[in-house]
Amino acid sequence: MQKATKVLIILFLIFVISIFYVSLNRDTSYNTSSLINKELPEFEISFFDEKKFYKKNDLKKNDYTLINFWASWCAPCRTEHPILMKLSQEKNLKIFGVNFKDKKIHADQFLKELGNPYAFIGKDINGKQSVRFGIYGIPESILINKNLLIMKKFVGPLSSENLNQIVEIIN
């Protein structure tokens, strides 16, 4: 066998093994971080209590918007609620709550009990709109800026660490 072939075979094997080695210490869990820095998609989310729709351009008015997908039946949404309440104090930030696959009575009850952090509330009764945002389980939150670019995505309940991150970005 020629020397070149031998060297090539060995280099190839080393390459494969080192990729295996590198992958061992990587976090292989899935996320939708690919959407970050992309523009917000078009959407049509109906008002919580009227027959009107929120559209993409409605969010241009705000410096920063946090789109939060929540539901009264979702337990982790309860745990992140205090964080949302704190964020609602921020001047540069408006929180857009999207009520996800929920009944209105239950949602109202939920907000009455825990407070309403949302500047506006929309509803997504069958979840179809959420797919446009790449949502795969709630709670999920998306931070966008004035130019409607996605700055950050939060999967799962917001933590106080996330709170600091958001405050840092918007100020």
Partner: peptide, 18 residues
């Protein structure tokens, strides 16, 4: 080693993989 996602669950641990 858990470097692949799979239908079949297996507890995984990087030190075993190594």
């Amino acid at each position: 080693s858990g470097i692949l996602n799979s239908v079949h669950t297996f507890a995984s641990d990087p030190s075993r993989g190594l």
